[in-house]
Design a protein around this nucleic acid. Sequence first.
DNA 1: CGAACAATTGATCCTCATCAAACCTTGTGG
DNA 2: CCACAAGGTTTGATGAGGATCAATTGTTCG
Lengths: 230, 230
Amino acid sequence: MNVIPADLRQVTIFKEATDDDLKLFVENSILRRIEDDEFFFFQGDPATYFYILISGRAKLLQSNPAGQQVNLRTINEWQMFGALGAVNPNAAYPATAQALEPCTALAIESRFLHDAMQTRPYLNIGLMQLMTGYIQEIQERYRELATERVDRRLALTLLRLASQIGKRIQEDDPAIELPLTRQDLAEASGSTMFTVSRTLAEWERQGLIEASRGRVVIRNPHGLVKIAEA
Amino acid sequence: MNVIPADLRQVTIFKEATDDDLKLFVENSILRRIEDDEFFFFQGDPATYFYILISGRAKLLQSNPAGQQVNLRTINEWQMFGALGAVNPNAAYPATAQALEPCTALAIESRFLHDAMQTRPYLNIGLMQLMTGYIQEIQERYRELATERVDRRLALTLLRLASQIGKRIQEDDPAIELPLTRQDLAEASGSTMFTVSRTLAEWERQGLIEASRGRVVIRNPHGLVKIAEA
DNA sequence: CGAACAATTGATCCTCATCAAACCTTGTGG
DNA sequence: CCACAAGGTTTGATGAGGATCAATTGTTCG
């Protein structure tokens, strides 16, 4: 598998990069393959590399001392992750990154991005825009977790994930597919596998979704919106 | 009340600013006074100004459609807030800012900071460091909310707030004072006034804290740490 | 002193986590 | 090609943790 520099334009912070810059980043990158369920890095590791996901899907998670996990973010192709280390060299990753499917990703030294930012304002701007986006999303999710019931949170989670990592199941079919287990959804919505299973079963009866092993298809997003806002 | 430019060095992003820059910012600022419980701005308002708190304390909050509130951040003197608008002009505030006490604050146009960042790299770096800090804190709190029980979350909340806005009650007394109501603590820990009241009463019996109207004094931080980690 | 508002306390109830057991799906190896 | 193992899923029963509601009691301040 080969990465063409111009492909990197799909990455938010490289949207306005010059061809030379893109080439430079690709040349200073390593293509890594991470198998299903394997880890890119662990929370607390020194943040030496950041990643750009080329194919597959991954998640950022934190676990508490007891081992319970929470999903912080789900990552799709051409998204960057693990880049906070570029702001403070010597920083540690604040979360763990795990592959949801077999993945390929470019690994680039945080140091390299950090240095590049000194002379390329567009990188600063791009990174800040990414960060403000994260802050807004997680603040919103924090509020939902603190104030909303499980079913609403799950509906919101499905909708959010659909827009972030969902794939059309067919060209002319509005149905959207999410390659996530009940457990993944529980960790993303702040609930348990059991409750997610029950709730999805109910929604399937109502024709809003289709659920199968490790997969949810959203048939009627509007119905979910209604539940989320009820 | 007058703000001396050099005072601004206490603000994270101005730590390494030149005297000229500080003067420039002060000259382009407005000193606003916000009374107890009044608002600096509301979620959704265009983020025209950002603020630097000079005296008093404030909080950033979000509320859901039903009016339930969540505290996202508590702000102390010489902290900056509302600055995400400097990254994207035309952006809206993602949260509401409300005074916990009578406050004075410098209001500066987001536009002005945005322009200044084009030529002053230290501002970019400072803002990014602030943002990474927020991201880490709220991610942690999100995990706690999803995985920990109320008493633990409340202990963590008290400890966190103590380090952020706590004041020593006396010079040679390690006790730390927080000027917060039970309701404030409920909104900061993701619980209710009632549960907070009960829990604090129990801790007061154990000599960990002292609670009075609109105020909590932490007598034994170590005891709270034990509860938080239990 | 009285009004407004913060805090307390008890009783009740609901949501959802937890646990246990069985069931299904998928992939593998004989 | 079948049998089996592994792991995701379902379903029911149970209970705990807190939210909610109501009534009362401080506390503060004009």
